[in-house]
Design a binder for these strands. Structure first.
Lengths: 156, 156
DNA sequence: TATTGTTATACTCTATAACTATA
DNA sequence: TATAGTTATAGAGTATAACAATA
């Protein structure tokens, strides 16, 4: 707490440690609780959230090997294996051999995976409704925050 | 990517369904991934995130019975029992009988719980550092988004 | 010897259902 | 009978460690 207090903030892009900690704390709790809330809302006939996240990543990035996929999804490789197994069973992704390196398996989204992803966007009922109900200025704030949230999720 | 702007929005606080769905989808994925990222960052000698969330709620709201606590934390009562058991073992909360209704047990934070919460705010190193590194305008956007995130997490 | 992917195992967190005690 | 809290059980998700195949 021994940081210079009061009016000492010289640079505009630096924040006092205690203010940063307070913001981090309220932010963290809000994020975690909202994540729980979203998780609880899933319907039964769709892949789980973790699967949808994987599918969405795969759709944007194109075919990936397990290791790269794990890095993009910010989980460990065994978790990717698990998710891909589940998605593969449903025909939403396929695994293929890497052309030159036979240790690797390339994972790619299928047409079925793509169309499910489209459907899913429409079916994300709970959160979509919340977005529609939000006053315009709040919705704008959320939209502005999304890229920041995304970068925070990606940062080391 | 399609900003989908143009001039089609008729009422300012209503959003077309497909735009809402798109926002919901990117927002959801960003939230879930960031939540995973935050989860992974926890240190070992502190209570888990779910425990910290409970402790923080208890600190703000004062003593709660299990049912009310579960409602505030947006989980089912058995989950509260679990969390409180863990926190009680560490002396961070205490349970006491309700004065009139002997079925109820009031759960309250202890001094140890409070000081741990203070410590924790300072120790939330990873996210705090990210907040400090954020440019001022992005930090402002996050701060503005927090109350909205919180309300979204609370809404039915 | 190093790397890729998988399996084995364990842990956290959650929920539903069944049970006990009290109202 | 209804409600509060707990216990029992199961399920989703994650991680680390150990392993086989390949480089």
């Amino acid at each position: 707490m021994g940081e210079g207090t009061s009016k000492s903030a010289s640079r505009p892009s630096e924040l006092r440690a205690d203010e940063a900690a307070r913001l981090a704390s309220t932010f963290r709790i809000a994020i975690m609780r909202l994540a729980r809330r979203i998780s609880a809302e899933r319907s039964d006939d769709m892949p789980r959230l973790s699967g949808l996240s994987a599918l969405s990543t795969l759709s944007r990035s194109g075919p990936l090997c397990t290791t790269d996929f794990a890095e993009l999804e910010r989980v460990q490789p065994p978790s990717i294996t698990r998710r891909v197994n589940a998605l593969e069973e449903r025909g939403l992704v396929v695994r293929a051999q890497h052309p030159s390196d036979r240790r690797r398996r390339m994972i790619a989204i299928t047409d079925a995976g793509r169309s499910l992803l489209d459907e899913e966007h429409e079916r994300d009922a709970w959160l979509t409704r919340r977005m529609q109900r939000l006053p315009a200025d709040e919705r704008r704030r959320i939209a502005e925050a999304v890229p920041i949230l995304r970068r925070l999720g990606e940062s080391d």
